[in-house]
Design a protein around this nucleic acid. Sequence first.
DNA 1: TTGTTTTTTTGACAATTGTCAATTGTAAAA
DNA 2: TTTTACAATTGACAATTGTCAAAAAAACAA
Lengths: 187, 187
Amino acid sequence: METYFERLHSVYPLSAEGLDLLKPFIAKKHLSKGDFILRKDETCRHIYFVNKGFARIFYFKNGKEITEWFTPEKNFCFSISSYFEEKPSHLIIECLEDSEVIYLSKEGLDRLCKTHIEISNFFSKLISGALILSQKRMDSIQFETARQRYEKLLKNQPYILQKAPMQYLASFLGITPETLSRIRTQI
Amino acid sequence: METYFERLHSVYPLSAEGLDLLKPFIAKKHLSKGDFILRKDETCRHIYFVNKGFARIFYFKNGKEITEWFTPEKNFCFSISSYFEEKPSHLIIECLEDSEVIYLSKEGLDRLCKTHIEISNFFSKLISGALILSQKRMDSIQFETARQRYEKLLKNQPYILQKAPMQYLASFLGITPETLSRIRTQI
DNA sequence: TTGTTTTTTTGACAATTGTCAATTGTAAAA
DNA sequence: TTTTACAATTGACAATTGTCAAAAAAACAA
């Protein structure tokens, strides 16, 4: 749990009082490989943090699984549209390994944001970080080739390549498994 | 200016006091076609609102202009990475028509967020809206064909098609002007 | 208006990626 | 171990999109 608090602090430097305010709304869960952090059509009521393990975010399109993102250890994840619009999630978050996941409740966070400015600022910082990430990913998808994106992944996040099956990686990169296989043999 | 206040209110219902707090940090500018709202390498220190007119957000990649987004009348725009990371913008925001643009200063907003919880919550709501938009756009880019995206634009935002030159639209859709031209003749 | 420049469209061809089918490889279950 | 199921690769071919060059159309200035 300590690494989680440190991570919260790196998002926004919370005072001891601020952290104490959050604590009642934090819960830890141990999940097994294949378990879901967020199920389809479930409303996303938490911001998740994968303290140990590895997860993927995916959804179904025309009966096929499309992987949207991976969440490596020590990273946050949640369904943006389900969380903010409070509607059933089309995204599914699944553990690809036995994982330890920390849940921060939206209900608690919302309530604290109304009354405590420190928490409100923490929350702003958290979502502006997500916004920057989202923007970078969009640029990458729109203006780089599948090969460039694969090479960037290989350079910056090789652990994702090691842990995730090819088919998930392919849909994450927006290409077919066949094309990914061909790219891999040519590098 | 009234429509701007109404729009702020629709983002997050501000009290009269909250609105008064913001007012000193709001400025209105009249810009001509071709003028820049944000120049290259300038740090983005405002959240802009195109009250009248039409703008596009673009950048240079390998010497070519890539249009990232359009900002129709009554919409907000800013450079996400430049604004939050306070670094020179690679994005350029240009008026495609004579425009009336309302500037909300980051400096003022940051200061108010530290002291007034209502403003902090307003700001959270503003950026979570941007995050939802960014997410939707990413899904669209990754999993729809250029033709599907063109048709969606035609259906949902036909005024963009009317106002923006083909070459800008093409790079916005992530295709060449030639391909866009061929798509158009086939619909 | 005319002439000039820029934008858009069209054609021919190349490169990339997708689809389908078959094969090989891998990992879990019997 | 062998069997079975699933994952990954490979080949052949089709579809899509890009590139380059040229023509047509539109926008702009003299």
